[in-house]
């Protein structure tokens, strides 16, 4: 294909992408380095807006708490989702006849909007008429019929578990694909040598799945750091109850659009830039570690 023809073919996509993705992404960073009075941009501010995040209210209390919640959300989701997802994928691997059907069923909640999922579970967990607590009471477990979303101690875990519930189909599919790629001969050979199912899994299959575990972990990290719609549905933009479900992107949204502070654009852009660096840096380091590990397996 000729260069000029090719450019004509690329032009519409490039124009859309440049205007609505690249330009805002690039300017997003520049916003953070200027002083702002409402929507008027002032002088170059250096790192002043970043300093605000660590010295002024409400950031001094809200930001560390929100970061902690993002980290708990990441670690909790990762541990629970990887364990359940890998177990299910492993069990499904030896059941070719029901595999497709079950994979499809597990993936169903992924389709539904996080907003719908949040409201649905809010209603199901309602202390007054929710079927979950009614069921628990009916089974004689009154002490378990808690006000799940009203209590700051349990609310964050509800968000984490519901998120795992919604996304479990994803690791099941990815680990299923990765297990399909483990040569049958390797595990066969181990069994011939007298290894049990468990040994064959932990010594042969699991090490070969490390790249897939890594991919799922990196994607979970990005997903957890960006969490917005699900916590919004559960706790609104302020992370009710009492900030127990507050996350960095909610704090960003509040600062940018709800705070009414004169320098809202500056400080919220600084927050977005930090979050971006955290996501990008975290994903980059994790990928680098993963690559090194992969080279070790193949060597």
């Amino acid at each position: 294909m000729r260069r000029r023809t090719g450019l004509v073919f690329v032009a519409p996509a490039l124009a859309l992408f440049a205007v609505f993705v690249l330009y805002p992404m690039v300017t997003a960073f520049s916003y953070a380095f200027f002083q702002w009075q409402g929507t008027t941009r002032g002088a170059f501010a250096g790192l002043e807006n970043f300093a605000t995040l660590f010295t002024k209210a409400p950031f001094t209390t809200d930001l560390p708490r929100a970061v902690l919640h993002n980290v708990l959300f990441f670690v909790g989701t990762l541990l629970i989702q990887n364990t359940i997802g890998l177990t299910i994928a492993y069990l499904l691997h030896s059941r070719p006849r029901t595999r497709r059907m079950l994979q499809t069923l597990y993936a169903m909640p992924y389709l539904v909007s996080p907003i719908v999922i949040g409201y649905l579970w809010t209603l199901l967990l309602s202390p007054t008429f929710g079927p979950v607590n009614t069921l628990l009471t009916g089974l004689g477990l009154e002490s378990w019929a808690l006000p799940w979303l009203g209590d700051p101690k349990t609310a964050l875990w509800v968000v984490i578990l519901v998120s795992v519930w919604q996304w479990i189909g994803f690791p099941v599919l990815l680990y299923g694909a990765a297990l399909g790629g483990v040569p049958e001969e390797l595990t066969e050979a181990a069994r011939v040598d007298g290894a049990s199912n468990r040994q064959a899994f932990s010594r042969i299959t699991l090490p070969l799945l490390v790249p897939a575990v890594g991919t799922v972990s990196v994607l979970t990290f990005i997903f957890a750091m960006e969490a917005f719609a699900l916590p919004y549905a559960f706790g609104g933009s302020t992370g009710n109850p009492a900030g127990a479900t507050d996350f960095v992107s909610l704090l960003f949204y509040r600062t940018a659009f709800d705070s009414g502070a004169a320098d809202a654009i500056g400080s919220s852009s600084a927050l977005a830039t930090l979050l971006f660096l955290l996501i990008f840096g975290g994903a980059y380091v994790a990928t680098a570690v993963l690559r090194r590990h992969e080279r070790r397996i193949t060597a």
């Binding site: 992408f17 805002p24 990005i222 992107s249 960003f252 852009s269 996501i279 990008f280």
Partner: peptide, 21 residues
């Protein structure tokens, strides 16, 4: 590579410039 870099960009973080755009 320019297009593919978009796979890595968390576009939601650019909501402020998008709003002003």
């Amino acid at each position: 590579s320019l297009f593919l870099s978009g796979l890595m960009l968390p576009i939601h973080l650019a909501i402020l410039p998008i709003f002003y755009l």
